[in-house]
Design a protein around this nucleic acid. Structure first.
Lengths: 207, 207
DNA sequence: GCAGCTATATGAGCACGCTCATTTTTATCT
DNA sequence: AGATAAAAATGAGCGTGCTCATATAGCTGC
């Protein structure tokens, strides 16, 4: 068993696929790793040759979706809009890709994107965070924030973003309009602050 | 075994006390519920007559600390300061009381205060959140925000607050100065936005 | 003090995520 | 082909948090 790089990738995809089905039909917590392994035609232990933990498995789905969201955003929007609008499109693109997974995302995001306890957290979550923040930085740069934006500002951005995701996972309004309002408000808040002149630490300044 | 209401409370306190010691010396995840039960002189299962889950047990400690923080705040500050300053004092009071537990708070807060998945979350966490937000509402009211502040605004406040807590649990700077800066920034941001006139949903307006 | 009742304590046992020694499969080299 | 070594699959088994049938202790009315 040396070359079968392709076969291995295939198995990986099959696991993710079956896992998604199970998570959607019975929820994240209720689905056992044994269930997933069986559904993918593997022994219980084999699953962990592909993913170090159940959490990481689920987070792979999330990360992939968010990455596609970023790609969508880059493809469609050159960034001619206003800053807040631009960020709104980024966030929306992510949510659109995450949409099919929404029913089971609560517990997954809680464990893997939570701002707490960066050490224990699974690598996939950390990477998703970095990928998103990189894109945000790029947008800010494009809008004239030349210096690397404040560490503090980005920390706050991530807090707001998590709040949005969290709210969205439980938003029962028809077309998730409530989430839309929250995104608007959060981003306006962020942009207004970062663009203005704030006493304490001094936000990055626009042109 | 009927009356011992007082005795029961005593046992509860003993559990919390021993658990704190264990959590501090070996961390939250590493400490088993069996460890705690034994340390409190109980059988493994008895622990769960007092706390429905390990998470809830830990969260009781947090909630108590935060409640004391709020009490401290109310005792010491009539609220003569500026709004942002007032909120800063509230947050600081909480952190001061939480300080002794800091070493093991990461995983605990992650699971119990996380904005995700309100359903699964333990009741203690939800209550702590409501208690804190009630106090925030009171402060806003005192500063002239007559209408109940926007649901949206409070959701955002909580996101920011969680971000602060999260950052604080991992803050390695000498006197947690970095956290101080984050609190300043976050609250300025919040106050500035809530006081100003923000297009989308319309924040509560000051006098 | 002795039944009777009920609140509490007990610990065997369950299901879970995950590990690891072992077995099986597969590619490469002669 | 056969031998060899590496990669991958296996499933028994471990330590968790937590449950639940059972046992025990404490109060009440006699």
């Amino acid at each position: 068993m040396r070359i079968s790089q392709a076969a291995k990738e295939e198995t990986r995809e099959r696991i993710l696929e079956r896992a998604t089905v199970l998570f959607l039909s019975q929820g994240f917590e209720t689905t056992t790793t044994r269930d997933i392994a069986t559904a993918a035609g593997l022994a219980a232990g084999t699953l962990f040759n592909y993913f170090p933990s159940k959490e990481t498995l689920a987070m792979s789905l999330v990360r992939e979706a968010l990455a596609e969201g970023i790609a969508d955003y880059q493809r469609r929007h050159g960034g001619t809009e206003e800053l807040a609008e631009d960020l709104f499109l980024l966030v929306s693109s992510g949510l659109r890709r995450l949409r099919p997974l929404r029913p089971f995302l609560g517990p997954v995001l809680e464990r893997s994107l939570s701002p707490f306890c960066r050490k224990t957290t699974c690598p996939e979550g950390e990477e998703a965070r970095l990928e998103h923040l990189t894109q945000v930085r790029e947008i800010l740069f494009r809008h004239g924030f030349v210096s690397t934006p404040d560490e503090v500002a980005l920390t706050i951005y991530w807090s707001l973003y998590l709040g949005i995701l969290a709210f969205w996972t439980g938003d029962e309004t028809p077309q998730q309009e409530a989430t839309r309002a929250l995104i608007d408000y959060s981003l306006q808040m962020f942009v207004q602050t970062i663009a203005g002149n704030l006493p304490p630490t001094g936000a990055a300044h626009g042109n």
